[in-house]
Design a protein around this nucleic acid. Structure first.
Lengths: 329, 329
DNA sequence: CTGAAAGCGCTTACAG
DNA sequence: CTGAAAGCGCTTACAG
C-alpha cells in the first residue's frame, strides 16, 4: 500500500498532527522540524491522499467543468482558458463531456459535486424546467446561458449579428438564410432573435432553415436545402454547420463567395483554414471561461452569500473570404 | 449543509449501517426496509458523499483520462469512446488536458490517482527517463506509446504507411516529403521509421522536414518549405499539419491534388470536409480508447498481479482527393 | 511549537 | 435482517 501520514509520524517520531502541519501548513511548525519531515516524506515517496484530505478539510482544489461536446471546436479554447486561469489560482480542472446529451448534465454534475470546489457549466442544454436542479449544485457558474438566480457569463449575440447583417447588406444581399441550431437551445434562441431583429432593421428578407445539430454533417444536409432556395447569403448557427455547408457546396460546384456568401459563428480555429476562409462572428469563449473561473472561486470562498453576478461579453464580425458582393443575375 | 446518512438514520429510526446497505447493497436488507429508506432518502434529497464513500471503500467508480491536447481533433473521438465504454461499465470519466506540456502529465496523474480507479494516458510525451514514474501510478494503461512493464494499446503505423507509399508510387511519385511531428514524440519515431522503410522498399526518394508541432499553424509554415523543394507528394505527421499545409498551398495558388499530393495521418473528421478532401491514414483511436478502458478496469479488479497486456491495432489508408497522379513536367 | 482527541461521512466485517 | 464498533487518512480546534 501507499505511504500514509501515520507511517511518516512513526518514522520521524512525531505526531501525525505535526507531520500534517509540516506538509500543508508550514508556518505553524518549527522550520527544522518542517525540513526534516519534508525530507523523510520525500524519501518515503509520500503522496497525500487527496480523498482523505477533501473529506476532512472540505476543500478539493478542483474545479469541475461540464461541456456539451469537446469535438466541437468552439469548446477547446474555452476549456484551455478555464485550465489556465484555474492553474494560476492553484486549482486543477476536471472535465466532463456530456456528448450533447442534456439529460446527463445534472447527473454528471452531481457525481462531480462533492469532489470539486465549484462547477462551471458551459452552454447547458438542460431543459428550463429542470434547470433549477442544476443551479442548486452551488457554487456553480453558467457560461452561455442565463439562469435566474444563478451566476453566469453570457455572450451577447446581437452586436455581432447586427454587424453580419450590415456587412451582407453592404454587399448587396437582400435575401438571407439563417440555419437554426438545435431546437430548445438557449443560444439558438438568442441568435435567432438577433438575426430577426437585424434583418428587420435593415429591410432584409429572412428565410429560416433547420433546426440543425451543431455538427459538420448537419451542414452538409443544409447545403442542398439552401441551394434549392433563392437566398444569396447564409448565416449559420455555428462554424461546424457552416463548414459542412461549404464542403457540400464546393462538391456541387457552387463557389462559396462568388455564388453564395456564408457566415459562421464562433470564429473557431478552423475558420481561418477552411476553403475559402470563413467569415465568422467571433465569440469570446476564452474570456468567458476565464471569467467563469474567477466567479466560481469567489462563490466558493464567500459560501454563496454574495449575490450571483452576471457578466455580459460582446461578439463581433471577422470578415474573411466566404462573403462577397451578391452576384448579378 | 447537505443531508447525510446519519440524518436519514435518524429520520427512519434505523442505524446508519442499515441505511447504508439499503442504499448501496440492496440485497442485504429486508425489501420493505429498503423501499422505506429509499423513499425517505429521496424525499430528503439525499446525495451520497462520494468522497467519503471513496475513502472507506477504496472504490471511486471513476476513470482518469489524460490527453495532450483536446483541441487536436484526433483526441475527441478517443475521449468519446472511452466515455462510452466506461459508462457501459458504470464508471464515469474525468478528463485532464495537459495542453501539450509533457511535464504536467505526471503531476496531473498524481492529482487524479487517488480519486480514480485507474488511469488511461493517451500519447504521453513524458520523456523516457521519467516514464517509469508515470507507470508506477497503477492501474494505468498507455495508449499510443509502448512502455516496458506497463499495459498499453499501441497503434502500428507501418501497414498504413506502407499503403500510403505504395499508393503514391502507383500514382508515379518518386520523390516524397515527410513532415516530422514533434521532436522526441514516440509516435513520430514510429511514423518516421515506417516511412523510411516503406520508401526504401519502393525505391522512393524521401526528403524529411520538421520537426513540427501537431498544429495547423505549423502546417502553414511547412507549406512554403515544401513548395520550395522538389517533392511531388508529402506525407504529414498528422491531419492538423496536413490541413495547415493545404490551406497555405491553396492560398499560394498551388492546387493540392493536381500540383502536389498530400497525405495526412489520423483520418480525423475534418479530413472528409477539407478542400480538397484529404487522403489520410486511418488510426483506430476509438477502438484504442475502448480497449484501454477494458484493460484498466481489469487491472483495477485484479489488483495488478496480472501481467500487463499489450494490444496492437492496425492502420490503413483512406484515399480521397488530395492525392493525384504526378504532374508531367 | 507540539500532541491527543475528535471528527469528516461513509462502509464493512463481526455479532446477534 | 439489523446494529454497534472500528476504521479509511487526513485536518483542526483545543490544550499545554
Amino acid at each position: 500500500m501507499s505511504v500514509t501520514l501515520a507511517d511518516i509520524a512513526r518514522a520521524t517520531g512525531l505526531s501525525a498532527s505535526t507531520v500534517s502541519r509540516a506538509l500543508s501548513d508550514p508556518d505553524k511548525v518549527n522550520p527544522r522540524t518542517r525540513d526534516r519531515v519534508r525530507k523523510i516524506a520525500q524519501d518515503m515517496g509520500y503522496v497525500p491522499n487527496q480523498v482523505a484530505r477533501s473529506l476532512t478539510s472540505g476543500r478539493n482544489d478542483l474545479i469541475g467543468l461540464i461541456v456539451p461536446d469537446i469535438a466541437n471546436p468552439f469548446f477547446p479554447p474555452i476549456i484551455k482558458a478555464v485550465q489556465a486561469r484555474a492553474s494560476a489560482k492553484g486549482k486543477t480542472v476536471l472535465i466532463a463531456d456530456v456528448d450533447e446529451h442534456p439529460s446527463d448534465e445534472i447527473q454528471r454534475a452531481r457525481v462531480m459535486r462533492k469532489r470539486v470546489d465549484g462547477l462551471v457549466v458551459v452552454s447547458p442544454r438542460t431543459p428550463d424546467d429542470r434547470l433549477d436542479q442544476l443551479a442548486e449544485l452551488r457554487p456553480i457558474v453558467f457560461v452561455n446561458r442565463e439562469v435566474k438566480g444563478a451566476a453566469s457569463v453570457i455572450i451577447e449575440d446581437s452586436e455581432g449579428m447586427r454587424e453580419a447583417v450590415e456587412h451582407l447588406t453592404a454587399l448587396g444581399h437582400r435575401r438571407v438564410g439563417y440555419l437554426n441550431g438545435p431546437r430548445r437551445s438557449w443560444s439558438n434562441t438568442q441568435r435567432q432573435n438577433a438575426v430577426r431583429e437585424a434583418c428587420a432593421a435593415h429591410g432584409v428578407d429572412l428565410v429560416e432553415f433547420g433546426p440543425f445539430e451543431p455538427q459538420i454533417q448537419a451542414g452538409v444536409r443544409a447545403a442542398d436545402l439552401v441551394h434549392a432556395s433563392d437566398v444569396t447569403a447564409v448565416i449559420a448557427y455555428d462554424d461546424m454547420i457552416a463548414l459542412g455547408l461549404m464542403a457540400r457546396l464546393n462538391e456541387r460546384g457552387v463557389r462559396v463567395g462568388p455564388d453564395i456568401s456564408v457566415i459562421g459563428i464562433d470564429d473557431s480555429p478552423m475558420s481561418g483554414m477552411a476553403y475559402p476562409t470563413l467569415t465568422s462572428i467571433h465569440v469570446p469563449g476564452s474570456e468567458a471561461g476565464a471569467r467563469a473561473v474567477d466567479i466560481v472561486l469567489d462563490l466558493a470562498d464567500t459560501a454563496g452569500d454574495a449575490e450571483p453576478s452576471v457578466v455580459q461579453l460582446e461578439t463581433r464580425l471577422i470578415v474573411r473570404s466566404s462573403t462577397s458582393p451578391v452576384r448579378e443575375r
